[in-house]
Design a protein around this nucleic acid. Structure first.
Lengths: 143, 143
DNA sequence: TCTTAAATATGACAAATATCATATTATTAT
DNA sequence: ATAATAATATGATATTTGTCATATTTAAGA
């Protein structure tokens, strides 16, 4: 469902949501060791996320990656779009060019409700909210 | 969302649902040309589907692929499982080992309702039903 | 200003998925 | 029986995705 890259990116961002802030930046190496993801690969993903302003970064000693307040208020879907690209979520399940409400493909009506539901969820849930649920013990994020 | 292989397989099976029967078998070549899918690749997929009894086949002249009554009464999810394997649909979105209702991962509660909804749809909709909707003009399957 | 710690940019390599090709086997019809 | 047709089995190639490595740039602190 989600690509490997996306899974790694989500884990890293959630880790940052919980452990970083403007005054407490975290290096790619530290993150990769904490969430058990190959560090060279994660570094690349973090750079991509920073480029898309999903996360913040600063170079040099005491530098690293972190989430500022603005980053935290973003919905999860921004992160997904940054890694997997825009189109993946919006296109027809069968990749048919002219499938829409008016002329639905044979699977359209079957998957449309679930898909809309999922998109709404991803669009509205912010990183801050997800992080807060972990802190409250509503959900669990094992390291 | 769906792999390329799966999209091709679904298109091919829907084509068979509409144009084949026990007395009217269709060759891989004919199908591939009709649904615009590379024929060598499709042939492989059709063989895989036949091996899993999703579709029927017979060799030799006048042979080819077709759907019998039993094939038509199968739910769509059988086809998906044959091509993409069992686990893909059932595992945690973040691939966390011990994510479940009791200890949901940070995304579990967000995606679970949509996922359950989708699974139910795929589990209950038969190939015959999908084919029938195309014939009735409820959905559209462009060649 | 020099050293050091970190991100950034770039590219090489590996694995998985998608695509193509061909030899073999089975079945029908002549 | 033989020829022709079509699936089957197998494997080769190409593209995409995932993984790793390294040289460069930036900023902090002594």
């Amino acid at each position: 469902m989600f690509s490997n890259s996306l899974k790694y990116a989500i884990k890293a961002v959630l880790y940052l949501a919980q452990h970083s802030c403007e005054k407490q930046k975290i290096s790619a190496k530290h993150i990769s060791e904490s969430i058990l993801v190959p560090h060279a690969y994660l570094a690349k993903l973090l750079q991509e996320l920073a480029r898309h302003n999903i996360i913040s970064s600063s170079k040099g000693p005491k530098g690293g990656f972190y989430l500022n307040q603005e980053n935290r208020q973003q919905p999860l879907i921004n992160l997904i779009r940054a890694i997997d690209g825009q189109q993946k979520l919006s296109t027809c399940v069968l990749s048919l060019k002219d499938c829409d409400e008016k002329r639905p493909c044979p699977l359209h009506n079957l998957v449309a409700p679930s898909k809309k539901n999922l998109m709404d969820s991803l669009e509205h849930k912010t990183l801050a909210e997800i992080s807060s649920e972990i802190e409250k013990g509503i959900s669990f994020f094992p390291l």
